[in-house]
Design a binder for these strands. Sequence first.
DNA 1: TTGCAAAATGTTATGTTATAACATATTATT
DNA 2: AATAATATGTTATAACATAACATTTTGCAA
Lengths: 156, 156
Amino acid sequence: MTDKIDSSLQKAQTECMRTGLRLTDKRSKVLKTLLQAGKPLSAYDIADQFKVSFSESLSAMSAYRMLDFLMQAGLVHKLETSNQYLACSHISCEHKHELPQFLICDQCHTVQEIGLGTHLLKELKDSIENTGFTLSSQQLELHGICAKCRADLSPQ
Amino acid sequence: MTDKIDSSLQKAQTECMRTGLRLTDKRSKVLKTLLQAGKPLSAYDIADQFKVSFSESLSAMSAYRMLDFLMQAGLVHKLETSNQYLACSHISCEHKHELPQFLICDQCHTVQEIGLGTHLLKELKDSIENTGFTLSSQQLELHGICAKCRADLSPQ
DNA sequence: TTGCAAAATGTTATGTTATAACATATTATT
DNA sequence: AATAATATGTTATAACATAACATTTTGCAA
């Protein structure tokens, strides 16, 4: 578990170096906060958790700035439908994804980052662009109930 | 134009009566505000515009409550990605839609409510539900550049 | 190595979006 | 008319986000 987080942080560091971005100590710690949480957090949650984890202050303002950086670097996503941030689940793999897709459980609030089939995505994209609209890289956020909560709700 | 708005208001009234919902004068005026705007507005924008249009006060708190009602009645949608509200574009037609889809232009901020093919939607839905996740009625909000802005940006 | 410019972070203030809690008014039902 | 339910008014405050400017740190050229 810790290994996974460490290797993600390592990978993030390497990737930033390669592209000339500065993954500073604080930025790295913000990313680590999200990786450790394993779930989406608000900017203010992050600032609070940061203080607890690292006994070091972080204003919400700074959290926002660091999140901006991490999002630009593709290391963090923002869930627009819940105003929360979460670490990209593909940091430690090679997987490149331009259109992240999230399944958000409205019961337990866990978020699963999935990869829809490229075929389906292409069809979706084509269907939209046929109307003359040009998609920017924008994510899908789909709400519902995850398998686990579904099972808990309707036992038997 | 005014006819379209009036007929939408009429239709909304009829539909609410039929289902036992109370589309009061204020609620109807909030809906009218959105229909007249023809674009998404924030709750505070609506309260402001309401005062201008009807020379009658409306607190933001009240606007939120009326928007909640109108959303429940299926007459208004909320754009979760921009915290704005807009009248459903299908009030005056028979079209029933459980999963609204929006194309949001990040340039001119116009919003187009589209209907993706049922085939494509079914495929998308199946693909997601195969993972064990149960979708609730959730809309798609896709950002990009509309045809008009696209043309303006790259002439010739 | 020093000095400068750019980037990052700190700090304070304020803007924007949304809800809580309780009071008052209106409406439907008996 | 009494009363219960619904709707609206009002005030306060929570939650999310950005602006503006000060200070510190870093990278780089002289």
